[in-house]
């Protein structure tokens, strides 16, 4: 039960992050929100594993964390290439 509550709580955080991602306003806010969303997903999966008593999903959580990180780095590398003054919103 506690896991369920925790999962719900994490979902709430994810929702907040998602809202920030939609709202922006700057591209960095979005990236930040995406990153936050990703790490919360990692936690959610971990909790979910315990919730369903199949904790061997943790590999997926590791993958998520990894992919999230690489994704963020890729986004930042992309943003770096943009010429000044033409930031996307």
């Amino acid at each position: 039960m506690i896991f369920a509550a925790a999962a719900l709580g994490i979902l709430v955080v994810m929702g907040l992050a998602l809202a920030r991602a939609f709202l922006g306003p700057s591209v960095y806010d979005r990236i930040l929100a995406v990153n936050m969303f990703g790490t919360k997903t990692v936690l959610l999966i971990a909790v979910y594993g315990f919730l369903t008593e199949r904790p061997d999903f943790l590999d997926i959580a590791i993958t998520y964390a990894l992919i999230n990180f690489i994704g963020i780095i890729a986004v930042l590398k992309f943003v770096e290439r943009l010429d000044n003054g033409t930031l996307p919103d």
């Binding site: 991602a21 922006g24 969303f37 997926i60 999230n68």
Partner: peptide, 29 residues
Amino acid sequence: LFAVVMLFGIYSLITAGVFIALDAVDVAF
């Protein structure tokens, strides 16, 4: 477009979450 692509990343991530909720762990992976 940039936001669209980033949101697509999120979209995929959420989808993967749904996959886990639907017991499809390999797919989520």
